[in-house]
């Protein structure tokens, strides 16, 4: 009984911190204040202050975690709604998402080798351009850590979206199609919401690319991991 109450308390703590931080973000709308980031630090602060180890926090956390599987499956819904759009631009989207996926994974693997990061760390950040729930599952399957995978995903998402305007300027990418595909397949959901600032077309391209990249990366990821770390 006590254990169940404890788990419930941890779930409530997580939800409360998250919505508090979501309110803060809605008020200031500054890229560094995204709720995942701020509520994570708030919860870590509380856990450290009350000497609660991560393992006991996860007694409650695992129940929230359990919803990640169905949440990934739920991505089929927006993909289905945009199936006509996907069909029309099939070759363009699939081809370029594959290019983005391969470039993204090989380049991050090469740099982490060059910087002498450990293999388990490198494998964790390999799926950095994939939307979080999928990246966690991919990293886990490759022998990396899911928590570490999120760190990589967050950096790719937040900084990708922040720097995108300068990158597009530098590389001379002007078309909304190119911008949408690049943002969706390199910076997943955060990038897609950035693409929404450009145009409706860029946003659709972004969200379709994000989902396709998740699927493609979970297929290509093991191959690249085997080639470079095998």
């Amino acid at each position: 009984m006590q254990q169940a109450l404890y788990a419930l308390l941890m779930i409530l703590l997580t939800v409360a911190c998250f919505f508090l931080m979501a309110k803060l973000y809605a008020r200031f709308a500054f890229a560094f204040l995204i709720p995942v980031l701020t509520s994570t630090f708030l919860i870590i602060g509380i856990l450290v202050a009350f000497h609660i180890p991560y393992e006991s926090y996860m007694e409650g956390g695992k129940w929230i975690n359990a919803l990640l599987g169905p949440a990934v499956v739920a991505l089929a819904f927006p993909l289905y709604r945009q199936r006509m759009f996907l069909k029309k631009h099939m070759f363009l989207i699939v081809g370029n998402v594959a290019i983005a996926g391969v470039v993204g994974m090989i380049s991050v693997a090469v740099f982490s080798k060059w910087f002498h990061l450990s293999d388990s760390l490198s494998l964790s950040i390999l799926p950095k351009s994939v939307t979080t729930p999928v990246a966690m599952a991919v990293a886990d399957g490759l022998g990396g850590s899911a928590s570490m995978a999120i760190v990589g995903v967050m950096i790719a998402g937040i900084f990708g979206a922040m720097l995108a305007p300068y990158i597009f300027h530098l590389f001379g990418v002007k078309s909304p199609v190119g911008r949408g595909i690049a943002l969706g397949s390199a910076s997943h959901a955060v990038g897609t919401s950035k693409a929404a600032e450009y145009s409706e077309l860029a946003f659709s391209m972004g969200s379709v690319s994000m989902t396709l990249n998740a699927i493609l990366s979970s297929l290509i990821g093991p191959v690249i991991a085997w080639l470079l770390f095998g």
């Binding site: 983005a100 993204g104 950095k128 597009f168 590389f171 001379g172 078309s175 943002l183 390199a186």
Partner: peptide, 17 residues
């Protein structure tokens, strides 16, 4: 490592698209 790779990915895939 993540930052440089992300910049490359956005630039290259944007250009190719």
């Amino acid at each position: 490592a993540v930052l440089i790779s992300t910049i490359l990915t956005i630039g290259i895939s944007g250009l190719s698209s």
